[in-house]
Design a protein around this nucleic acid. Structure first.
Length: 279
DNA sequence: AAGAACCCCAACCGCTGAGAG
DNA sequence: CCTCTCAGCGGTTGGGGTTCT
């Protein structure tokens, strides 16, 4: 990024010539903060001039909203926030500002960056379109449940009920592997309260296939419910080498995982692709 | 140790809609 | 209506830091 715009001849262009671009300095931040504290925000072009900033109004607005505003939250997104982003994006698509409205202190820019750098990256590694139904299923079937687990782990000390589903034959195992292999479901209504969802527990049948899935729901949507998952898309995904989450939870045994995730250090990034195989 | 590759994120750009004149 | 300005939104870029080879 250049620090100053190119030179020109007319007076309006002379003004443009003086406009700064690129990273903000401490002095500029201070000027902007000071001005907004005294006069409030809005009328950004005028504000930029009156504050003595050689910046466009646009630039000032962005700097304020994304960085200087006191309620802007810094730091990594929590599992709750990540879950909410995934869920709201599945509903609204790339409506970043709308999504941001539901994450206090987070900016649309931050959410957009999260989506592009984390979520779309996963899609790239899986060689599927991030906007495809197949990828949405992957998100719903693997990522979101894992985030829910993380959220549960955070709230384990609370009093609400927690239960763990075990695979058939794994109930008595105390190994780390079996604990990983099973999928925990807690009281999802508690977990999902923050997202404003009505939840209801999903009963798991004795069917081995069903029992090998983690199941939860919110609203009328039951994950892993055959009516919810687009089986055609899942079949397509399967034909493309992507495991059908309904029938295949042996992730670590699958080349998809080994090739796509492990090689890219995703586990070390703390991403939720951490289901273990079980035998 | 050094260069390459990758990743993150702040900031920019272009477009659109609302509102004023 | 039409034009202009402003605010806001989503897409994109590129600098700097980190990790990999």
């Amino acid at each position: 990024m250049s620090s100053l715009t190119k030179t020109s001849t007319s007076s309006s262009e002379d003004e443009a010539e003086q406009l700064r671009r690129g990273p903000w300095t401490l002095e500029e931040d201070s000027l902007l903060l000071h001005y907004i504290n005294r006069h409030g925000e809005g009328r950004w072009n005028l504000l930029a001039k009156l504050a003595g900033l050689r910046r466009t109004g646009k630039s000032c607005r962005l700097r304020w909203l994304n960085y200087l505003k006191p309620d802007v939250k810094r730091g990594n997104l929590t599992p709750q926030e990540q879950f909410l982003i995934l869920e709201l994006h599945s509903k609204w698509g790339n409506r970043w500002s709308k999504i941001a409205q539901h994450l206090p202190g987070r900016t649309d820019n931050e959410i957009k960056n999260y989506w592009r750098t984390r979520v779309q990256k996963q899609a790239r590694h899986l060689k599927i379109d991030a906007n495809s139904v197949a990828f949405q299923n992957v998100v719903r079937c693997y990522w979101m449940p894992s985030l829910l687990q993380k959220m549960e782990a955070q709230t384990q000390n609370e009093t609400w009920q927690h239960q763990v589903l075990m695979w058939p034959g794994e109930q008595n195992s105390d190994s780390e592997q079996s604990r990983d292999a099973c999928v925990s479901i807690g009281n999802m209504s508690k977990v999902s309260e923050f997202a404003g969802y009505q939840t209801s527990p999903v009963s798991v049948s004795g069917n081995d296939t069903l029992a090998s899935m983690d199941c939860y729901s919110y609203g009328n949507t039951s994950f892993y419910d055959v009516e919810t998952i687009n089986l055609a898309a899942a079949a397509t995904a399967l034909s493309e080498g992507i495991p059908n989450p309904v029938n295949d939870c042996h992730l670590v045994d699958n080349d998809w995982v080994n090739d796509g995730f492990a090689d890219h250090g995703l586990r070390s990034m703390g991403e939720p692709w951490e289901l273990r195989s079980f035998h």
